[in-house]
Measured scan of single mutants.
Amino acid sequence: EADPRLIESLSQMLSMGFSDEGGWLTRLLQTKNYDIGAALDTIQY
C-alpha cells in the first residue's frame, strides 16, 4: 500500500499540473522524503 505522505504530496503536485508518467514524480518525491518544496527545487534546476 502506498505511503499516505506520498499520496498527499503526489496529488498536490498533480493538481499543480505535473504528471507522473512513468512514475518519475513518485520516485522523486520518495527521494525527497515527500517534500514538495525540495522536489520543485530539483525540477527547477
Rank of each mutant, 00 (worst) to 15 (best):
E1S: 14
E1D: 13
E1R: 05
E1Q: 13
E1L: 12
A2V: 14
A2Q: 11
A2L: 14
A2Y: 12
A2H: 12
A2T: 12
A2E: 12
A2N: 14
D3P: 07
D3K: 04
D3T: 05
D3E: 09
D3H: 08
D3G: 05
P4E: 12
P4H: 12
P4A: 13
P4D: 12
P4F: 12
P4R: 11
P4Y: 13
R5H: 03
R5E: 08
R5N: 08
L6N: 02
L6Y: 09
L6A: 06
L6W: 06
L6E: 05
I7V: 13
I7E: 13
I7M: 10
I7F: 10
I7Q: 15
E8R: 08
E8C: 09
E8K: 13
E8N: 11
E8P: 05
E8Y: 12
E8W: 12
S9N: 04
S9H: 05
S9G: 07
L10N: 00
L10T: 01
L10K: 03
S11D: 10
S11I: 13
S11K: 14
S11Q: 14
Q12R: 08
Q12L: 12
M13R: 00
M13N: 00
M13Q: 00
M13P: 00
M13T: 00
M13H: 01
M13V: 03
M13L: 12
L14F: 13
L14N: 06
L14K: 11
L14C: 07
L14E: 10
L14T: 09
L14A: 09
S15Q: 12
S15I: 12
S15F: 09
S15R: 11
S15Y: 09
S15W: 06
M16P: 00
G17L: 03
G17S: 01
G17M: 04
G17N: 03
F18N: 00
F18G: 00
F18R: 00
S19K: 12
S19A: 07
S19R: 11
S19P: 04
S19Y: 09
S19L: 09
D20M: 03
D20P: 02
D20N: 12
D20A: 02
E21Q: 07
E21L: 08
E21K: 09
G22L: 07
G22P: 01
G22C: 09
G22I: 04
G22Y: 08
G23L: 07
G23W: 05
G23E: 06
G23A: 04
G23R: 03
W24Y: 08
W24I: 06
W24L: 05
W24G: 03
W24R: 04
W24D: 04
W24Q: 05
W24P: 00
L25N: 00
T26Y: 05
T26H: 04
T26S: 11
R27M: 10
R27N: 12
R27C: 09
L28E: 02
L28D: 02
L28G: 00
L28R: 00
L29D: 03
L29P: 01
L29Q: 01
L29I: 05
L29F: 02
L29Y: 01
L29C: 03
L29E: 03
Q30D: 06
Q30M: 11
Q30H: 10
Q30N: 09
T31E: 15
T31W: 09
K32W: 06
K32C: 10
K32M: 15
K32L: 13
K32I: 11
K32V: 15
K32N: 11
N33K: 07
N33Q: 11
N33M: 10
N33A: 08
N33E: 10
N33S: 06
N33D: 08
Y34N: 06
Y34F: 10
Y34W: 02
Y34L: 04
D35E: 09
D35F: 04
D35A: 04
D35L: 05
D35K: 04
I36L: 07
I36Y: 04
I36V: 11
G37F: 14
G37V: 13
G37H: 10
G37C: 09
G37R: 14
A38S: 10
A38D: 07
A38M: 11
A38C: 06
A38T: 08
A38Y: 07
A38E: 11
A39D: 01
A39R: 00
A39M: 04
A39P: 02
A39H: 01
A39N: 01
L40N: 03
L40Y: 07
L40V: 07
L40R: 05
L40T: 04
D41E: 15
D41G: 09
D41F: 15
T42A: 15
T42Q: 14
T42E: 15
T42N: 10
T42Y: 15
T42F: 15
T42D: 14
T42I: 12
I43V: 06
I43A: 04
I43C: 10
Q44G: 12
Q44Y: 15
Q44C: 08
Q44N: 15
Y45D: 07
Y45E: 14
